[in-house]
Every structure is written in C-alpha cells, then in structure tokens.
Amino acid sequence: MNKFFSNRRLVIIIVGLIVSFGLMSFSVVVRNNRATPPMIQQFGNDVVGLGNRLVALPVAGVKNSVSSISNLLNTYQENNRLKKQVQQLAQTKVRDQALTGENQKLKTQLKLNNTLTDYDALTATVIARTPSSWQDQVVIDKGSAAGIKKNMPVLSGKGLVGRIAEVNRTNSKVELLSNTNEAANRFAVQITNKSGETVNGIISGYDNDKNQIEMGNITTKKKIEKGDRVSTSGLGGVMPAGLYIGTVAATGHDDYGLASKIMINPAADVSSVSFVTVAIRQAQTTE
C-alpha cells in the first residue's frame, strides 16, 4: 500500500485530477455562455452522429415492428375513442381556419409581419439518449444546418418537452423538462384562468416524484384553479408564445409561505420522447 502512492504515481494522479477538473469547467463555461461548442467539437460530434444513425437503423426497425404489433392489438378500442374526438375536431378545425384567416387580415391591416405566436415547426428524430442518470438529455438528428439555435423550445406529442442545450451542424442535444439541472427549465410561461385573465411566471423546477412541473415565485392575487391551461408566454429569448405545456394540477405556497407555487401536469410524456418538433420563432429574438 505504501508503494502504491509512490511519488511518481501521486504526481500523475494529481495532474490527472487537475486536468480533468480544468476540462470540466471549460466545458461548463462553453455550455453556459456560447451559442455553439468549439468548431472541432462540433465536427467530432457530427461524425459521431453519422455513425449513430447507421447503428440506430436496425434498432429502429425492430422497435417499429414491435410497436406496430402492439398498436394493432389496441386498434379497436382506440378507433372507438378517436371517432368521438374526430367529430369535435372537425368543428374546431373549421373555426381555427376562420380565425387564422381573420388574424392574417387584421395583421396586414395593422402592418404587423410576425407576432410572437408565429413559428416554423421543424420535425426531428431522437437518435440517442445520454446514458446518465443525472442528465435527462437526448440527441436529435437536426442541427444548425436546419436552422436550430440554442435555447429553442422542443415539443413532442401534445406539448413542450424541453429546450435545445447544444447545437452542432447536423445534430443537437435537447435538455428535457425533467432535468434537475439548476440552469435548465427557465421557461417563461403564462396561465390563463377561467375568466380569461393571464398570470405570467417562470418554470422553476421539476418534481420527479409526482411527474409534475413546478412554477414558483408567483405573487399575483388572480384566482388560479386546477385545470387552468399553461402555455409559453414568448417573453424573452427565442421562445414563441402559445406553446401548450400542460394544466394546473395544484396550487399552494412555497416553502417560506410568501409566494405561491403552482404544480403543472405536463401534457407531453417527458419520459418517452422519440419524435420531436423544434419551434423556430419567426419574430425577431430579443437576444
């Protein structure tokens, strides 16, 4: 044992530790402050991403065939349920078309080009998930070449699932909402209550236990009830407005009893993300 920490080994270990921490802090600084990682890292990630897609092909094939069989088994019940929804949907769609048309006309009258609610949807496939218990992060197969920028919101299925954390040329990393990262999850959101009043706030965390989003530091007196809808407010950054996040699950006070804290049931299933949509805002960014 005395021999183990001989002078030379000790020096190597300490140098190794210092280099390791140096590299780690460099990476974190880059991650927090720069829009894209250094050129060489981007290039490396692009090459690795290419290989990833090759290996992912057969796995995706197997997975698709399994899920198509399980879909087939559920078809009858699903069909019954969907028939009911389709009837309502037709009405909503027609109304939506009329409203969009009206909106366009009003905008041209007001000479507005793009407002906060206008965004382009970019569809991407999840090609890998970080094998780590601490970073809820996935890699998608679109990057800056397709117009993705850091901090753009990412949607899956019914609602918001996360934001872009790192952009390479042809792939990018998405930090999911369930991340407990201190720097993540800072989405500007608004709650619309039954009487049409809106309350603005910021997502402050995620409760893994109950699978709910936390929204803290709210000091409004407006009444918020269970079931009120939550969407992005489009204030600040590159986030468009009106992206659906979920519904209010519970309201209460925070740990100090001063501000109120609202728990939100996310509309999208954050624990299972395979296809995502990146929302690219058309209005100019404030950054």
């Binding site: 290996v55 992912a56 796995v59 995706a60 999840v126 090609i127 809820d136 893994n208 236990d209 624990s271």
Partner: peptide, 19 residues
C-alpha cells in the same frame, strides 16, 4: 458505444422511470 445511447432512447419509459 452507440448502442448505449440507442437503447436508452428506445427503452426510455423502461430504463428512466422514476424512482
């Protein structure tokens, strides 16, 4: 190396399900 990420993505509900 690739399979680590791909398996994680393909079986997310099974592998990363709190707790």
């Amino acid at each position: 190396l690739y399979l680590d990420g791909i398996i994680g993505a393909a079986f997310q509900p099974q592998l990363f399900h709190y707790p």
